[in-house]
């Protein structure tokens, strides 16, 4: 019997119904982001950090000392794995199936996130390019600032529904809309 494996997004049941056009405050859920976990070996922390920054198509996200998430929305997982394998002194694991990436942007994004995380998101304290793990409601997520009014949230797949519902609830007063993005 032929077995067909279909990819089904964790938020498939949450984002349903009629497609609405995106409001200024918009949450866009990446369909198939490539997310690798990167751990530096002892003594290699700095070199691996620099190599990650220099790697093409890869956005490194800080998790803790000697630990990053390597994110790519443009390259495929083989390409990213190839780039990462060139970094010496690092252990790399594909986490794409276990993580969900959501990008939130718009003029009110900081007011929305202020109701979710206990971290100062003023540009002076959390500048574009900055990223860190933090508590979002009751879920530990990785939050990154990708622009002045743009953030990306990476959550464990099984918590994505709860994080998504929380975000939409907090964004309701700012007319936050949501949709999938990318193939």
């Amino acid at each position: 019997m032929a077995l067909t494996l279909l990819h089904r997004h964790a938020l498939e049941d949450h984002i349903l119904g009629f497609e609405t056009s995106a409001n200024p405050n918009h949450l866009s859920v990446a369909r198939r982001p490539v997310i690798f976990s990167v751990l530096a070996h002892a003594g290699q922390e700095q070199a691996v950090g620099l190599a990650l920054k220099a790697a093409p198509d890869i956005a490194p996200r800080f998790c803790g000392p000697a630990e990053w998430l390597a994110v790519s929305l443009t390259a495929g997982s083989e390409t990213v794995a190839g780039h990462l394998s060139e970094i010496s002194g690092a252990s790399v694991v594909d986490q794409s199936d276990g993580k969900v990436l959501m990008a939130i942007s718009g003029p009110s994004v900081r007011q929305i996130l202020a109701k979710c995380v206990g971290v100062d998101l003023h540009p002076q304290a959390f500048a574009p390019g900055h990223s860190a793990n933090m508590l979002f409601g009751h879920v530990a997520v990785n939050l990154a600032r990708t622009g002045p009014d743009a953030f990306e949230i990476i959550t464990p797949r099984s918590f994505a529904g709860s994080v998504y519902e929380d975000l939409m609830e907090m964004g309701r007063e700012f007319a936050l809309t949501a949709s999938f993005s990318g193939g």
């Binding site: 206990g118 971290v119 100062d120 304290a125 860190a132 793990n133 933090m134 508590l135 530990a140």
Partner: peptide, 8 residues
Amino acid sequence: CGTRPKEE
């Protein structure tokens, strides 16, 4: 990580 609430 910087300044964080004790809940973390």
